[in-house]
């Protein structure tokens, strides 16, 4: 089990150039004062919206260290987040890559301008390169072209990818990537569709 995470950590290490870039921190503000400012600006929002910007134990550590969390705390974060990951009951991690493409291109959901019943996308292309033919991709995350092919479609790698998409911080503490499953942005089905986009040999990502 440990080995899976070690591999996963290696795989996704390149995503973390951000965390490694040390930014100088001036004298930090008193957290109670920061909270008062947050209240002044967001205090009129509905309670469920305000709850979303209340940092959990993991984000408190990431925020305080500008994502450069010390290794002891990093281990705690990874353990805590890993406990949140729910794998499919039927063990099937590979969904439909064609649906995966739609999810990867869909940036809707979760914005205050979205209708409340909007089905959220993963917006993967905002940060990652996937299919080679799609040239409009972001660079905040690493390129994922030929992702499954380069990993010989190995079951361990497939499980690690599901884990990473479900909860990025179950793999790397304070990763910039959203915790799509743990934060209920994407459903289990959507995540397996994205895993298929990465690992199905027929997926354009591997062509």
């Amino acid at each position: 089990m440990k080995k899976v995470f070690w591999i996963a950590a290696l795989v996704f290490n390149s995503t973390l150039s951000f965390a490694a870039s040390a930014q100088t921190m001036s004298k930090p503000a008193d957290p109670a004062v920061v909270d008062a400012y947050v209240k002044a600006t967001f205090g009129k929002a509905p309670p469920e919206w305000q709850a979303r910007i209340e940092p959990d134990e993991t984000l408190k550590l990431c925020n305080a260290t500008h994502n450069n969390v010390p290794s002891a705390d990093a281990d705690k974060i990874v353990a805590r987040e890993l406990a949140k990951v729910v794998y499919p009951a039927d063990g099937k991690l590979l969904g439909d890559w064609k649906e995966g493409i739609k999810i990867a291109n869909n940036g809707r959901g979760g914005q205050f301008s979205d209708p409340p019943d909007t089905v959220a996308g993963g917006n993967c292309y905002a940060c990652h390169q996937l299919e080679k033919k799609e040239l409009s991709f972001g660079t905040l995350g690493p390129s994922l072209t030929a992702y499954g092919k380069e990993r010989n479609y190995a079951p361990d790698a497939i499980k690690a990818a599901f884990t990473k998409i479900y909860d990025s911080q179950a793999v790397v503490a304070c990763s910039n990537m959203p915790r799509f499953g743990a934060n209920k942005v994407l459903s289990e089905k959507q995540i397996t569709d994205l895993v298929a986009l990465l690992f199905d040999p027929e997926s354009p990502v591997n062509k």
């Binding site: 921190m25 001036s26 004298k27 930090p28 503000a29 957290p31 004062v33 920061v34 400012y37 947050v38 979303r52 910007i53 209340e54 940092p55 984000l59 990431c62 925020n63 500008h66 994502n67 979760g110 959220a120 905040l140 910039n176 959203p178 915790r179 934060n183 209920k184 942005v185």
Partner: peptide
Amino acid sequence: AAVGEALFYRRGGVMDFACATC
């Protein structure tokens, strides 16, 4: 200025995004 810096790095929302993410 100090609060502004803290807010710049404060992650939140369903995507865990801060200003610093981008």
